[in-house]
């Protein structure tokens, strides 16, 4: 599907790819700043995130701006585009698995920590103090 849109520089090919990716970028940037408002992400991290997704959007909307990069990756070709998207999906899967592993590691560490503090008599002690304040 190609929807031609007239711009100052001529015709702009509005392909689904050029609609979906900027929308996705917007969602990701909004997600990051939402985390900043909730205090779970720093402003610096949100800025990095914005820079990354903003860059993705610019590359998608104006590929000629990064002509050297597109020439180098060969993403203009259809087969190469499929190849690049596949790599992107695989990277996402790897990231997702890494996040899951980190979450599991964190749970295990919390368990080991709780057991260590309990064995050291600290958790029982604080609970007693809270029930019978001096």
């Amino acid at each position: 599907m190609i929807i031609p849109v007239t711009t100052e520089s001529g015709f702009f090919e509005f392909t689904p790819y050029r609609v979906v990716v900027p929308l996705l970028s917007f969602v990701m940037i909004a997600y990051a700043w939402n985390h900043v408002l909730r205090g779970t992400k720093t402003i610096w991290e949100a800025l990095l995130w914005t820079l990354f997704w903003g860059g993705v959007t610019i590359v998608v909307l104006f590929p000629n701006w990064l002509g050297f990069l597109t020439a180098w990756t060969g993403i203009k070709g259809q087969a190469n585009a499929v190849f690049a998207i596949t790599i992107g999906i695989l990277l996402f899967v790897v990231f997702h698995i890494l996040v899951r592993i980190e979450q599991m590691q964190k749970r295990m560490t919390d368990l080991v920590r709780h057991e260590a503090l309990r064995e050291a008599g600290l958790i029982g002690r604080i609970e007693e103090d809270e029930h019978h304040p001096k």
């Binding site: 295990m108 560490t109 080991v112 920590r113 057991e115 260590a116 503090l117 064995e119 050291a120 600290l122």
Partner: peptide
Amino acid sequence: VSHAMNCGAGAATMTGVHA
């Protein structure tokens, strides 16, 4: 305070902070 298994320097430091 003893960890039952090796968890890493960061985990040990945080356990110390909790303690």
